[in-house]
Amino acid sequence: MDKNVLDKWLDGTHTAEELKALEQDPTFAAYRKIDRFAKQIELPPFDTEGSLASIKEKLANSQRKKPKVRVLPALLKIAAVLALVLVSYVFINALPTTINTQLAETTTLTLPDTSEILLNENSEISYQKNSWNENRMLSLNGEAYFKVAKGETFTVNTPQGTITVLGTQFNVTATNNTFQVHCYEGLVAVTYNNETIKLPAGNGVTVTNEILEQTKVFVNKPEWHGNESSYDNVRITDVLKDLEQNYNTTVSTQNIDVTLRFTGSYTHTDLEAALQTITLPLGLTYAIESEDSVIISTAKNKE
């Protein structure tokens, strides 16, 4: 069967000759039955315009229910970014700069005003590097030597007391058991327990039994700069504690007078020489048991 002729018959555009040709085909009778059955089916009426209006209304309602997104004007966006940058800048500037040293380590740092600080071993110092001109305060725990730039001033806070710098060179020792300030040049003001003492060059203060005592300084810089430790009327127990740290050893004592005081220096490079320097002037003896153990005793006990 010719499909093109069948399509014309279904559309009603066939000719009489084409219909005669179809009728000669045995399968055409089946197509006629299908055609008659289809024409008997009645479809319900369809309101095209009404359905289109209903669809448009549903679309409009769905659009109204969508959340509204407000777009910030360009100026507001710029303001928000600038505010974020400002907050970040303030936060970063508020962070302190902290430097610390380990055992047998020293380091030198330069402040923004060109003042120099030599930090001794086992010490820590912190300050506001990014806002130094507005916040001229440092925190020190341990020992440090300060060489202040001419005309500059700042304050050093320690757990024990406060030192106000007035353009000078000075040394501060602030540990759990010791608070000592020596002035080598210029003038510093030391405050301890609400008591303030001004120290000119060649003077120092030491806290003994929670009392601020003035002392004399006979050298032009602290001996630890040259791998030495220097003391002026310091309790022997404090000297031996420093010796333990400097040589990473344990010092035990046997029947010594804990009220003894030591004035002098000892080297950081020779343990036996250091022990001789400390014990001989005080009538003590020593024994090096091992690399990490030393015993200090009185001369009569040694015998």
Rank of each mutant, 00 (worst) to 15 (best):
Gln128Ala: 14
Leu119Ile: 08
Ser265Gln: 07
Lys129Asp: 10
Ala189Leu: 02
Gln214Trp: 05
Glu289Gln: 15
Lys68Asp: 01
Pro112Val: 10
Lys66Pro: 05
Leu140Val: 07
Ala299Tyr: 10
Asn246Met: 07
Lys65Asn: 03
Leu119Glu: 07
Ile92Met: 14
Ala273Glu: 15
Arg261Trp: 09
Leu212Asp: 00
Val219Phe: 14
Trp9Asp: 06
Lys3Tyr: 08
Leu275Trp: 01
Gly167Trp: 02
Ala80Gln: 00
Thr173Trp: 03
Glu105Tyr: 02
Glu134Asp: 14
Ala38Pro: 06
Ser230Gly: 15
Asn4Lys: 11
Lys147Phe: 03
Val90Gln: 09
Ala174Arg: 00
Leu109Pro: 07
Gln214Asn: 10
Val165Lys: 00
Thr253Asp: 03
Ala30Asn: 13
Thr97Phe: 15
Thr27Ala: 14
Phe179His: 00
Phe91Thr: 05
Val294Ala: 10
Leu118Asp: 12
Ser230Ala: 14
Pro45Ala: 15
Thr98Leu: 13
Ala174Phe: 00
Asn227Thr: 05
Ile125Gln: 06
Val148Trp: 00
Asn133Ser: 14
Val87Gln: 05
Thr158Cys: 07
His225Ala: 07
Asp270Leu: 07
Ala274Trp: 00
Val165Pro: 00
Ala149Cys: 08
Phe146His: 02
Glu57His: 08
Glu213Ser: 09
Leu22Phe: 03
Ser62Val: 07
Glu124Gln: 14
Ile125Met: 11
Lys216Tyr: 09
His14Cys: 08
Gln160Lys: 14
Glu143Arg: 01
Thr178Met: 11
Asp35Met: 04
Ile296Leu: 09
Asn93His: 04
Leu95Lys: 13
Val69Ala: 00
Ser131Phe: 04
Glu57Thr: 08
His268Gln: 07
Leu84Tyr: 01
Leu280Arg: 13
Leu280Glu: 13
Ser293Val: 06
Tyr127Gly: 02
Asn209His: 15
Tyr89Trp: 13
Asn193Cys: 09
Leu76His: 06
Ala94Ile: 08
Val156Ala: 06
Gln128Asp: 11
Val239Met: 10
Asn133Tyr: 10
Thr279Met: 02
Gln254Trp: 10
Gln245Leu: 10
Gln169Phe: 02
Tyr89Thr: 14
Gln254Pro: 05
Ile99Pro: 01
Asp113Asn: 01
Gln169Met: 13
Lys3Asp: 09
Tyr231Thr: 06
Asp238Cys: 06
Thr108Gln: 15
Phe37Trp: 11
Ile288Gly: 12
Val71His: 07
Asn227Trp: 06
Val294Ser: 06
Leu240Ile: 07
Lys300Val: 15
Asn220Lys: 11
Phe179Ser: 01
Ala287Pro: 00
Val165Arg: 01
Val5Lys: 03
Val234Asn: 03
Lys129Val: 04
Thr110Lys: 11
Met1Asn: 09
Gly142Thr: 02
